[in-house]
Amino acid sequence: MWSYNKILQYPIKIKNPDPRLAKFIISQYGGPDGELGASLRYLSQRFGMPDQKSKAILNDVGTEELRTP
């Protein structure tokens, strides 16, 4: 269940825009090794795990990764 908290895990306050850097950083949003892919991968894999610990880790790391895209 998705539930939004109006806060970031780490504060982001960029004083000077710099689109040159945005061009690279977007990769960690939706690129092959990015946060979106990671969160969806863990949340999809959790269904097939054989023990409680691995189910919990995939669920909880997937949830944390979902905070980061």
């Binding site: 109006k6 806060i7 970031l8 504060p11 982001i12 306050k13 960029i14």
Partner: peptide
């Protein structure tokens, strides 16, 4: 403000 707008300090 919303967090992505820098409202989170």
């Amino acid at each position: 403000p919303w967090p992505w707008e820098g409202g989170n300090f």
